[in-house]
Measured scan of single mutants.
Amino acid sequence: QVATSTVRILGMTCQSCVKSIEDRISNLKGIISMKVSLEQGSATVKYVPSVVCLQQVCHQIGDMGFEASIAE
């Protein structure tokens, strides 16, 4: 089973930030795809909930120095 959710990301300033986040999160087990939008300050994450949760994704992004939260 696959889920798609949006994560809000604060602190991104350039495409390099976007690429860094996409590269790191895409390597997590259970992540199918991730598309980060600098303009919208968010990311669309396609993932397998039984393998990885959005809290883990937000935590990983937080470790990179950005502020991440699950969009309502």
Rank of each mutant, 00 (worst) to 15 (best):
Q1E: 15
Q1M: 06
V2A: 07
V2F: 11
V2H: 08
V2K: 04
V2D: 06
V2W: 14
A3K: 14
T4M: 10
S5T: 07
S5I: 08
S5Y: 06
T6G: 06
T6N: 09
V7S: 00
V7R: 00
R8D: 09
R8Q: 10
R8M: 11
I9A: 00
I9C: 05
I9E: 02
I9Q: 00
L10F: 15
L10E: 10
G11A: 03
G11R: 04
G11E: 02
G11W: 05
M12A: 00
M12W: 04
M12Y: 03
T13V: 13
T13H: 14
C14S: 07
C14T: 06
C14V: 03
Q15C: 05
S16A: 13
S16E: 14
C17G: 03
C17H: 15
C17P: 03
V18E: 06
V18Q: 05
V18N: 02
K19P: 01
K19M: 09
K19H: 10
K19A: 08
K19T: 12
I21P: 03
I21V: 05
D23Y: 09
D23W: 09
R24M: 07
R24P: 01
R24K: 13
I25P: 01
S26C: 07
S26K: 11
S26V: 08
S26A: 08
S26G: 14
S26H: 08
N27M: 13
L28F: 06
L28P: 01
L28N: 03
L28G: 01
K29F: 11
G30V: 07
I32R: 04
S33F: 08
S33R: 07
S33P: 00
M34S: 02
M34L: 10
M34E: 00
M34G: 01
M34P: 00
K35V: 12
K35H: 11
K35P: 00
V36S: 00
V36C: 08
V36G: 01
V36L: 04
S37T: 07
S37Q: 07
S37I: 06
S37L: 06
E39H: 12
E39D: 11
E39Q: 13
Q40D: 08
Q40R: 15
Q40S: 14
Q40F: 12
S42Q: 11
T44W: 13
T44A: 10
V45M: 06
V45Y: 04
V45K: 02
K46F: 08
K46H: 09
K46S: 13
Y47Q: 01
Y47F: 08
V48E: 10
P49A: 07
P49H: 07
P49W: 07
P49E: 06
S50M: 07
V51R: 06
V51K: 07
V52F: 04
C53Q: 10
C53K: 13
L54H: 02
L54A: 04
L54F: 04
L54I: 14
L54Y: 03
L54W: 05
L54D: 01
L54R: 01
Q55D: 09
Q55A: 11
Q56C: 09
V57R: 03
C58M: 13
C58N: 11
H59F: 14
H59D: 15
Q60N: 09
Q60A: 15
Q60C: 05
I61Q: 03
G62Q: 15
D63C: 07
M64L: 14
M64D: 01
M64F: 04
M64Q: 02
M64G: 00
G65S: 02
G65R: 02
G65V: 04
G65K: 01
F66N: 01
E67T: 11
E67V: 10
E67G: 08
E67M: 12
A68S: 06
A68E: 02
A68W: 08
A68P: 05
A68M: 06
S69H: 10
S69T: 14
I70W: 07
A71S: 11
E72P: 09
E72G: 12
E72C: 07
E72D: 13
